[in-house]
Write a protein that binds this DNA or RNA. Structure first.
Ligand SMILES: [Mn+2]
Ligand SMILES: [Mn+2]
Ligand SMILES: [Mn+2]
Ligand SMILES: [Mn+2]
Lengths: 219, 219
DNA sequence: ATTTATTTTTAGACTTATCTAAATTATTTT
DNA sequence: AAAATAATTTAGATAAGTCTAAAAATAAAT
């Protein structure tokens, strides 16, 4: 099946929205993610339904079919492998790779992405800690433990970033928080749910907005 | 100036046709190169003329403006650097890289291609021996000496391939002729202009069709 | 249970890039 | 120089993806 970049972007958006929201994905939600009008989304999901890539009943939202899901995961795989390439080989920063990967993920080839994967020595996660699906589409999601839920006095390791937006990543750079870092929760402030955290550069105060967007593994 | 992939492809086609034909490029020639109808080409060149990327007078064909030329060379640069990447880093064969580079050359980024160039350690030529333009758009064309014009008894080095089509490259693979190889012309057959050539695997007969598509440097 | 507000879909229009068929201009041949 | 042929352009149509505005359906509020 030969899909346009636009169709691929819709499938990818539906995939991540479905993952974040669990139930059927609404037209409006997609339109916000893709930055189009709801009417355009309706047109497209009807086209995708026609191609058996989404389940769709009028006014009920959509969910991916098995084949739709498979394609979406393939695009996620490409996206994340390209991100690794840009960071590891071309010296980009982790806040710069996403935009470029949005283009590179649409390169069509039977062999390219597997060769790229081998060249990168089979990375398991992208620069933001997101898992990279394997060739067969298997993907190991990390358990959603956020820094915000770590108990006082306990330590943890940063394994991922939920919000991979440019400003958030730049902010983490400023705090010198990176994947693999060990963080220790010194105290929590009940008033605004901020926490005092021991990092590699000393103890800093982190707002709840930040701490609930950092995936960690408890030690 | 933000151009579509299609517009970029037209500029690139006009660039290489102008290089091969020296004078104004005709509508039909472009239509054959891009595999569209002549009427589509007329539409597009009028659009490109509107954007000051080509000089165009009705029925007179087109030539690139300075800015059009600059953009075309940038695309050629991207194309050839991606070809090098695919061959050197991802282990593709020289007959497989062109198709993929046709897609990769359209990735939009201010920084990507320069970082890629550095990563590849500033290659000067692509896998087919074509020169890679530098950041400023300077390009050193090799002097057009073809194997067919090498005198009997003289030796030469293969420095490029004029026809970079899949079947021709595969054929050269079969003859084990590669860039950098030394070839010695043993004899020429006046009847069909074929020549007996000493190669790395022994002496073989090469037709004029072949020998006039191989760029060489005389020793 | 109505009314109101929100979401979703339809209808019609626009843009880009393409095509076919017809008209126009340029080039060759006689 | 006129006729025939070839190349080029115009006119009108189509498909993909988007938009606005209006209609229809669903959800929320009274
Ligand atoms: Mn990303
Ligand atoms: Mn990522
Ligand atoms: Mn090429
Ligand atoms: Mn090449």
């Amino acid at each position: 099946m030969m899909l346009s970049q636009t169709e691929e972007n819709y499938l990818k958006a539906i995939y991540s929205l479905a993952y974040a929201n669990s139930n059927n994905v609404s037209t409006t939600l997609i339109s916000e993610a893709i930055k189009t009008k709801a009417s355009s989304v309706t047109d497209m999901i009807q086209k995708l339904a026609e191609k058996d890539l989404v389940h769709y009943k009028k006014y009920q939202g959509v969910s991916l079919t098995e084949i739709g899901q498979k394609i979406a995961v393939e695009i996620v795989r490409k996206h994340r492998l390209w991100e690794v390439f840009l960071l590891n080989k071309l010296d980009y920063n982790w806040d710069e790779v996403h935009e470029l990967a949005e283009q590179l993920e649409h390169i069509k080839s039977e062999t390219l992405i597997d060769k790229l994967e081998a060249f990168l020595e089979f990375p398991t996660h992208d620069p933001h800690g997101d898992p990279i699906p394997d060739k067969e589409g298997n993907i190991k999601h990390h358990n959603d433990t956020m820094l915000s839920s770590v108990e006082t006095g306990k330590s943890c390791i940063v394994i991922g970033i939920k919000d991979s937006s440019d400003p958030f990543l730049k902010f983490l750079d400023k705090l010198q928080i990176q994947l693999g870092n060990t963080l220790k929760v010194i105290s929590k402030e009940p008033f605004d749910n901020s926490m005092l955290v021991e990092t590699t550069i000393g103890s800093i105060s982190i707002s709840n907005q930040i701490s609930k967007n950092i995936f960690v593994k408890n030690l």
